[in-house]
Amino acid sequence: MSENPILRVRNLKTYFDVTKGLFAQKQIVKAVDDVSFDVMPNETFGLVGESGCGKTTLGRTIVKLYEPAGGSIEFEGRDIAKLKGKELISFRKDMQMIFQDPYASLNPRMTVGEIVKEPMIIHNIYANDQEREDRVVELLKIVGLKPDHIRRYPAEFSGGQRQRIGIARALAVNPKFIVCDEPISALDVSIQAQVVNLLESIQKEMGLSYLFIAHDLSMVKHISDKIGVMYLGHMVEMGDSNDVYHSPLHPYTTALLSAIPIPDPDIAKSKARIVLGGEIPSPINPPAGCPFSTRCPKATERCHKETPKPIQVGNRIVSCMLYEK
């Protein structure tokens, strides 16, 4: 417990201005609203939620692709908003990202060798081209590709192989932290397992931390040590992955878990599902009070008025008034 987190996020807010027209009323999407969490070294933090809940925006804000509207992100004890010059470059090296779409995230006109080498050149981490080339070959082996793939173009690879190229590129600069944004959603089941196992073995060998973003709860539970559940820009529940899965506290987590289709006919057909009425509200006009109050089966009048504060319950953090003392 004495260990310091590698990533410390406090009250993070990322807003987008979506106002259309000069005189129109200002419209703000609060994609991430007041989110706090820690990721420890060597740990996988899984982030789940449905489309539009802000999980991808959160990931992108952490790698500094978006400017936060408020709150702080500390990486290894330093506030990343204040990083400049050399420090910023070194942060970029330590923090890498793997993207969802293995087709859009690789330049079709570059060979695999060039793609994996590019970050090494930018960060100037090897003395000469021969050393870089050697490292590329080594990385290709680590991710399960062949050394002679180095001269080929992305178009010659399948989705799963492309995702491996993306992983090799992320590993090229020996990062400490990788944000994996839905890295397996575009892949077939048998290939998903290959990529998940690869990410796990790389973590074991290199001592990396992951922020693993996905909507597939079964895979997130499998790969993560801790899970954070997001709804409409808010982190509604957070804790050890087995705890969250087996005894969810927040009514949204409970409903979300009950909706997972389990690949086992006896369980799947007998499992009772909690019916959530309605749709996810628009983040432009989020409901007053608790973001989940419009669909929550346990909502009281107070839930529609006050926004719940994060409460510590055991070693879990939950934002729900049901747990107030």
Partner: peptide, 24 residues
């Protein structure tokens, strides 16, 4: 093979997935 490479969240021992090597 297909059944072995999906994560069943009801299994508590997060046993490693057994992917099917190769592609279709």
């Amino acid at each position: 093979g297909l059944l072995n490479c999906v994560a069943n969240p009801e299994d508590d021992e997060d046993k490693p997935l057994e992917p099917i090597a190769g592609s279709p």
